[in-house]
């Protein structure tokens, strides 16, 4: 579903990713962990073209998105993204936030898009907030709307960039619950997070990144109970 081949990324002199190769299968939930500055956020931003690779290739659903001729706008319709700071459209209501993509990008009829939006609002438990503006919602609610907004495009893969890092502790649970529900529905997911409980419970595979490299990867139980690499051990001992 997502294949990265020898991907490197540098911002000027600063090398953020060094020769990363990996692939994500359909329906797989991959959790990427690592200290800040390890390159994990940059990596998932490359997958929907918010950043461009310095070298290497990335394929999403067999289309090479790193090819200069590829229409990124077209690819992004199939790649949902959830941001650390939600990035809801401040001038639009919850309902409009979710339906604007289907209406403007997929050219769906308004009534149909609203119907889809209400279904998604039921799914994230926020139907009663349909007419609220983002600044009337709590952080956890905003992030659930953001997930619904991404899902409204019927993506084939969902990317999460530290979706709970900007939330107050008591709101983390409600967002993780929505993500777990999504994982159960066989959605292909790539999740950058510090939530080890989530990784353990729903992750099929955990990738540990450090200093722009994939240091170690494997099933969560193995990774957490028996990490092979010294750097993984150090990192896990700090956060577990």
């Amino acid at each position: 579903m997502v294949i990265a081949k020898n991907v490197s990324k540098a911002f000027g002199e600063h090398v953020v990713l060094k020769d990363i190769s990996m692939n994500v299968k359909q329906g797989e939930v991959v959790v990427i962990i690592g200290a800040s500055g390890s390159g994990k956020t940059t990596f998932i931003r490359l997958i929907n073209g918010l950043e461009t690779v310095t070298s290497g290739e990335i394929f999403v659903n067999n289309v090479e998105i790193t090819h200069s001729k590829t229409n990124l706008h077209h690819i992004r319709k199939g790649v949902g993204m959830v941001f650390q700071h939600f990035n809801l459209f401040n001038h639009l209501t919850t309902l409009q936030n979710i339906s604007i993509g289907p209406i403007k990008v997929l050219k769906m009829k308004k009534a149909e898009a609203h119907q889809r939006a209400f279904k998604l609002l039921d799914r994230v438990g926020l139907r009663d907030k349909a007419d609220a503006y983002p600044d009337e919602l709590s952080g956890g609610q905003q992030q659930r709307v953001a997930i619904a907004r991404a899902l409204a495009m019927n993506p084939i893969v969902m990317l999460f960039d530290e979706p709970t890092s900007a939330l107050d502790p008591e709101m983390v649970g409600e967002v993780l619950a929505v993500m777990k529900d999504l994982a159960k529905s066989q959605m292909t997911m790539l999740v950058v997070t510090h939530e080890m409980g989530f990784a353990r419970e729903v992750g099929h595979r955990v990738i540990f990144m450090d200093d722009g490299l994939i240091v170690e990867q494997g099933p969560p139980i193995e990774m957490f109970s028996n990490p092979r690499e010294k750097r993984t051990q150090d990192f896990l001992s700090k956060i577990l």
């Binding site: 918010l50 706008h73 941001f83 990035n87 459209f89 495009m153």
Partner: peptide, 11 residues
């Protein structure tokens, strides 16, 4: 972030 969110839904 507003631009990135818009691009991420394919606009």
């Amino acid at each position: 972030g507003q631009t990135e969110a818009a691009l991420s839904i394919g606009m």
